[in-house]
Design a protein around this nucleic acid. Structure first.
Lengths: 221, 221
DNA sequence: GACGACGAAATTATTGACAATCTCGTCGAT
DNA sequence: ATCGACGAGATTGTCAATAATTTCGTCGTC
């Protein structure tokens, strides 16, 4: 799976995180050490260290003598993760407005325009890729690398939920409109407005998800 | 050190985190496995798992074949941690306003009043204890346990910095005033105002620290 | 005296064997 | 047929021995 002779604990954790993001590992599923050792080629020490890292992140649950399993986030937990993410990405939007170069702002605008075209095409994967690129551009251009790291860790448990919403055309259209408001504020140099718009955008995603949850309850096991 | 026969990785991590918070372990200092094993009574496995947890938190730096050392936060890192903390505690203040019981609000007010009396007495430890209690009351009463967990993890690298500011009378008086504004907004039921006030309060702490840093540079090694 | 190669000491990483614990199916008594 | 005790298998926890790597002091050469 990994070509190097000895993957580090971080690399193994990344691998497991990737499996969870792709839904190859689903909430509640047990993570048996031996299987991970076989699939990653890591030593037992490294695998257990990786599991502890993920437990510290809140992504898996490690219990004494019972091993690790993928944690199942409750709707309340999801709500708080979205709230936190909205607040932190809001900060980044404000910092981006104040600190990003004009090249970076132009690129942000370009990606937003590409997403506007992508709304029509029925490709959630493409839209999700552009969406991640757009959000990352802002956090990187803002220079808030610490906050970016926090957001990305917070995102893992809700990653598939975000993706889920991209199958709904109404959500795509709303997201594109939200992005436009953010980009406009950035271009105007209005940091406060950019922050508000970004936070609103993320909370909109949460509320869309809540309505979905009420009718479908796809997050249970 | 710990009375139980086998402390878990979480307990060892807590112990190390406590040592760092008390400045018994300072940034740059190396964490030798054998020493931690002797002091905590944990097994080698558990100690290494604990170090990985702390590395995931960003509190220590684990390098291949070189072991762990306490990370040294830059001023820019501190700024981002404060920004994130301010945003998240702001959310909690809003949620507290909307969701806390009147008993909890009364207790918050009581602690704030106790702090006002404590400004005169020259006991930074007592003030710090009350301060932590006040902030925790809000996060707990808001029901935002996930966010509370995030904030507490973010806080560790800057804990001693916060404490440092409590030796300055001007900071104590300013903090007490900030708290008063938050409590008033909570009592008025104005969630938005509570959020703004809380965020301002945390950012004020950061700015006080920045001014301190410019003149003293006590954070270097 | 400065510089670099060498090697001993310290520390971390890996491995295998074994102990402790949990899970789950089976069997027997009522 | 139902319930509980028992035990085999699976999985995790611990320990000790060894390998791999870094660190740092020493020595020799220029």
């Amino acid at each position: 799976m990994l070509e190097k002779k000895g993957p580090s604990a971080v690399e193994i954790a990344d691998w497991i995180r990737g499996q969870i993001r792709r839904r190859r590992l689903v909430p509640g599923q047990r993570l048996v050490e031996i299987d991970i050792i076989r699939q990653t080629g890591g030593s037992r020490f490294k695998v257990r260290e990786a599991l502890q890292r993920l437990d510290a992140e809140g992504l898996v649950d490690v219990e004494e003598f019972r091993g690790a399993s993928v944690r199942n986030a409750t709707m309340e937990e999801v709500r708080q993760l979205y709230q936190a993410r909205g607040a932190m990405e809001g900060i980044c939007a404000a910092d981006f407005t104040a600190r990003a170069t004009s090249d970076e702002k132009a690129e942000l605008n370009a990606v937003a325009e590409e997403m506007e075209l992508c709304v029509a095409g029925p490709s959630p994967e493409q839209f999700a890729r552009l969406n991640a690129q757009w959000h990352n551009l802002i956090m990187t251009g803002a220079g808030d690398h610490v906050i970016k790291g926090i957001v990305q860790r917070l995102n893992t448990p809700i990653h598939h939920l975000v993706f889920e919403t991209f199958y709904r055309g109404e959500r795509l259209r709303a997201a594109v409109q939200d992005h436009r408001v953010v980009v406009d504020a950035v271009m105007d140099g209005d940091a406060q407005a950019a922050e508000r718009a970004m936070r609103t955008h993320v909370i909109n995603g949460l509320e869309f998800l809540s309505r979905l949850d009420e009718s479908v309850h796809f997050g249970e096991d």
